[in-house]
Amino acid sequence: MKYQVEQPSSLVDINHLALAEVRQTEGGGISIGAMARNSDVANHPLVRTNYPLLSQALLSGASPQLRNMASTGGNLMQRTRCYYFNDVSFAACNKRNPGSGCAALEGYNRIHAILGQTDKGSNSGETCIATHPSDMCVAMAALQAKVEVEGRGGKRIIPFAEFHRLPGSDPSRDTTLREGELITAVTLPSDGRDDLGH
């Protein structure tokens, strides 16, 4: 929104929802509320002890000030993006302006995607070579987390690796979240937690 990439007509403040808890689940795993702050998750005893991989990934991202504000759900919902998405002076960006093409393909793309991207030429409406910016999500995927979501259609659970989608034929869609759905928590299974690190 700061770069005028997103210009929503209305916003809903979800800060008052009681979703900030990190707790042990019955199966021995943990549940991390969608509003739990990145700092609180990284420093939580259950995470530090059982999932050091997640703690390390969180602490390698952003800065302390940002981690104090960034939420677990918000981290998942970061746009898969690149500089050409962020700068609206580039007309071509299939993510920002579906069908407009991709300015990154012929531009500066040293840090862009190698795996999972779609390259059908810079004029194609399907081309996108952006990457997801989250360190936390890499750890969550490795730990085989599950994303709990809730919407008008009720609750459902999405395996972490299926939450973010590849550009395919529609680069403007980053996730498999349906309209009206909200992330309530991310759960981590008990198995394989031990002392994984990176």
């Binding site: 500089y83 700068d87 002076s89 580039f90 300015a103 012929e106 531009g107 500066y108």
Partner: peptide, 17 residues
């Protein structure tokens, strides 16, 4: 400081990049 060849904009104009 990286300048995009197509329109001269600095593409990495933040401390994140």
């Amino acid at each position: 400081g990286i300048v995009d060849a197509s329109n001269g904009r600095i593409v990495n104009a933040s401390l994140a990049e």
